[in-house]
Nucleic acid binder design. Sequence first.
DNA 1: AAACTTACTGAACACTGTTCAGTAAAACAA
DNA 2: TTGTTTTACTGAACAGTGTTCAGTAAGTTT
Lengths: 208, 208
Amino acid sequence: MGIAERKGRDKQEMYDKILRAATYMFLEDGYEKTSLRSIAEKIEYSPATIYLYFKDKDELFCAIHDIGFQMLLKEMEAAGKIKNPLKRLHEIGKIYIEFALKNPEYYDLMFIIRAPINAMREKQGDQNCWELGQATFMLLMQTVTECIEQKLIKSKDPVVASMYTWSAVHGLVSLKIRDRYEVMNLTDEQLRKMLLQSLDELIGLMKA
Amino acid sequence: MGIAERKGRDKQEMYDKILRAATYMFLEDGYEKTSLRSIAEKIEYSPATIYLYFKDKDELFCAIHDIGFQMLLKEMEAAGKIKNPLKRLHEIGKIYIEFALKNPEYYDLMFIIRAPINAMREKQGDQNCWELGQATFMLLMQTVTECIEQKLIKSKDPVVASMYTWSAVHGLVSLKIRDRYEVMNLTDEQLRKMLLQSLDELIGLMKA
DNA sequence: AAACTTACTGAACACTGTTCAGTAAAACAA
DNA sequence: TTGTTTTACTGAACAGTGTTCAGTAAGTTT
């Protein structure tokens, strides 16, 4: 049985090796400039080898997408410990914005680029692949629900309130990541302050 | 002088021909699946011909991006006529959302895809290319400023308020266009209603 | 009519994602 | 130990992409 175990370990190690190289290059050069050929070259294998471990490029990037969500969820743990749901909501927003500013490539892959979504759709029956995104959304939803129950915010519908909260914050960071604030001519630091100030203001508006 | 005029017209017609074919195929198949070779085939010229009229693919799509903004600005004219700035703000939001839902490919190109931004950056001195985006933002900014002046909304800083308003609405539609609402399992109609309801709620929160 | 310019092209270049027949090495069975 | 089967990997091919360039035919100018 030792041979089968060793082969299983070898397989997992190879999978991880490809994933690490891909992640490294993706963070370095961005999605558009990370090719399977360049990843293969980095690990000193043929491009065809990658297809023994991943169905296609989309599936490989889906795995990186999942790493990004695990990172985000880990950061969200801190917010999860805050008792006051309104403070928690605010903290969730801040962590989300800081995560996006610190990890723009991950954020892009998690919330904008279509590749991981394509890969998840192909695994129709596999509900697991959506669970990371759902976990993040559930934390927000739960927090918003508690805010509503304790009458800390004006909104009554938790789904709608979760939606515009997420959208607002996503809009803030995604317009930055896709370079659409250039019309405003701000430095990075000015922009960062403005994003956090916008969040503050939004939370202020939501407050009952 | 007739020859020079005729050659100028010919050049403009060729430019328009390429742009129309590109726009048609882009709206039909989306950005990812619209290649210069396929555009060239449609107009029955060689791919190399396109480079006589456009610097590269990014510049061609920048021209389509501009058409999208012209369309959006035209739709915004209706909102421009509303005297009450808060009602106008609400209408601007609605028009923005409806535009995105009706023209997802244009919206994607205008606010998410990097190609047009790359092309505009290359024309550093040419401030004209940013003016369409700025015009849209200026209408929002002006409306928000009037709301603040007339104490119709709580916010005091027009830049911040414009920013989170734009971001919120952009977030709503861009998460849809990039298929990130699938975690929520909603039909298109349910989603559309929810987007508009979120906008209503946001405006409600903003109200003084 | 000769010379020059312009608009266009086919082919090339360098790259991409993906597949497949072939092969060497590992594992298995006798 | 040997023969057979399986596995992991590869080089090459396929079909496609954006972009450039030397060559050419037609139009324009002298």
